[in-house]
Simulated assay, not measured.
Amino acid sequence: MKFAPIEDLFHIFDETAQILQDELSCTYLDALGETGENIFHGKVLQEEISELSQKRLMKHYQEFTLDKYQKEEIRKAYQLAILKGMKENIQPNHQMTPDAVGMFVSYLIGKFTHGQALLSMLDPAVGTGNLLYTILNYLTDKNITSYGVDVDETLIRLAYAGANLQEHEVHFFNQDSLEPLFIDPADVVVSDLPIGYYPNDLRASEYTLASDKGHSYAHHLFIEQSIMHLKDGGYTFFIVPNNLFLSEEAHKLNEFLKKHAHIQGLVQLPLSMFKNEQSAKSILILQKHKEGLQAPKEALLVQLPKLSDAARTKSIMDQIDTWFRQEKQVGK
């Protein structure tokens, strides 16, 4: 892919966000969400903008037409602008799933849902939507109805603008994902799980995976909520810490999973992607129980090498293809 279109797009997003940031006295991220909406509608929606700034904004907006750029070019340029905004205003919950991870999750979803042309997909921690849009841009052979939930208003506004710019139909809910969700069960739940403690002990107490003392692990509650919002036989693709099954609450999580789901696989992401071994993550693939559905004879357990190591990466991909042929009768 040429970089020129991505650079051009980033320049449009960045310049116009800075103009709106100054005019509206807001953060860069909030201004980016506003400019995303303006670009989609092809006009300045904010009434309080000075005439000079309106003219400057419209000059940039007229350079953008949706059919001029590919969806992935729009996603990557928008992602770069979001990353710039996150550096200005760092918060622990403002983190983006790396592209390589999103692409590999897309590949796995394609393999596990082979033969399913229609899918419904839920991301209960959608954030800016980057993981979801990577999947939607990659799985172009499927018709996917998507749902995204996030408690953070800034992030969900960015996700909403990003969906419009890439012309993805996504239903967004700005709420605490661990409160009741009024969403039909999905074929696939995908999420880069928020890690940490959930502060609402009263709400947590309604979950099987609530801690017996102190705050509960938010990521455990997200796993339970996700499985409850999955169709029988549906799949989850969670990005989880490598030490998920080593914590003091792991026994409870194991019992819950035995009762409700089959572990289909655990794919350890390259350690080179992370600052240190403690922050390393894996992709956990679960399938919700369904009458007549058997657990795999062997779960898919692989450790991905550095993706720059072509020979080892090919060897692992061959190993994964073999597993799919043996367990799922899915050919190359």
Rank of each mutant, 00 (worst) to 15 (best):
Asp141Gln: 14
Lys314His: 09
Val149Ile: 13
Leu32Ile: 06
Lys297Asp: 12
Ser53Trp: 05
Tyr28Phe: 15
Gln79Ala: 11
Ile320Met: 04
Phe172Glu: 15
Leu118Gln: 15
Pro124Cys: 07
Lys68Phe: 11
Lys314Gln: 09
Leu244Pro: 00
Phe237Lys: 08
Ile285Ala: 01
Ser211Gln: 03
Asn130Thr: 14
Glu179Gln: 12
Ser50Trp: 03
Lys314Ser: 09
Gly292Pro: 05
Ser53Phe: 06
Ser226Cys: 06
Leu118Pro: 06
Asn164Trp: 10
Arg75Asp: 13
Leu32Met: 10
Thr35Asp: 09
Ile6Trp: 07
Asn254Leu: 07
Phe173Gln: 12
Met96Gln: 11
Leu158Trp: 06
Val126Cys: 13
Gly42Pro: 06
Ile12Tyr: 15
Lys2Phe: 06
Arg157Thr: 13
Gly110Cys: 00
Tyr147Gly: 04
Thr154Trp: 06
Gly162Glu: 07
Gly265Trp: 08
Leu9Trp: 07
Asp212Phe: 14
Tyr147Asn: 03
Ser25Gln: 15
Tyr160Arg: 10
Ser247Tyr: 08
Thr140Tyr: 03
Val170Tyr: 09
Val126Trp: 06
Ile285Ser: 00
Ile183Trp: 02
Glu153Cys: 09
Val330Thr: 14
Asp309Cys: 07
Glu51Pro: 01
Asn174Trp: 07
Gln303His: 10
Gln116Gly: 08
Leu307Cys: 07
Glu23His: 13
Ser315Ala: 15
Glu47Asp: 15
Ile109His: 03
Pro5Thr: 02
Ser146Pro: 02
Ile239Pro: 04
Ala117His: 11
Asn38Ala: 08
Ser226Glu: 01
Ser106Leu: 03
Gly214Arg: 00
His215Asn: 09
Asp141Leu: 06
Leu253Met: 00
Asp212Met: 12
Lys111Thr: 04
Lys111Trp: 03
Gly36Tyr: 04
Ile90Phe: 10
Gln319Met: 12
Arg157Glu: 13
Ser191Cys: 13
Glu48Gln: 12
Leu253Phe: 02
Ala295Tyr: 01
Gln319Phe: 14
Ile82Ala: 11
Ser226His: 08
Gly196Glu: 01
Ser50Leu: 05
Gly162Ile: 07
Gln91Ala: 01
Met86Ile: 14
Glu48Tyr: 12
Ser25Lys: 12
Leu20Asn: 04
Ile320Trp: 05
Gln70Tyr: 05
Leu286His: 02
Asn254Trp: 03
Gly331Asp: 13
Leu253Asp: 01
Phe222Ser: 01
His168Leu: 07
Glu37Cys: 13
Thr145Cys: 11
Arg157His: 13
Gly36Cys: 00
Val267Met: 08
Gln95Ser: 08
Ile156Glu: 13
Ile109Asn: 07
Leu155Val: 10
Glu47Ser: 12
Ser272Met: 12
Ala310Asp: 12
Ala161Gly: 04
Thr154Leu: 09
Leu193Thr: 11
Arg157Cys: 11
Tyr69Val: 06
Tyr207Met: 05
Ile19Gly: 08
Leu202Met: 09
Lys306Pro: 13
Pro270Arg: 05
Gly42Lys: 07
Ser191Phe: 04
Tyr28Ala: 10
Ile74Glu: 05
Ala4Leu: 12
Ile109Tyr: 04
Lys213Pro: 02
Ile109Glu: 05
Lys87Glu: 14
Ala299His: 04
Gln21Ala: 09
Thr16Arg: 03
Ala161Phe: 10
Ala204Val: 00
Ala295Gly: 01
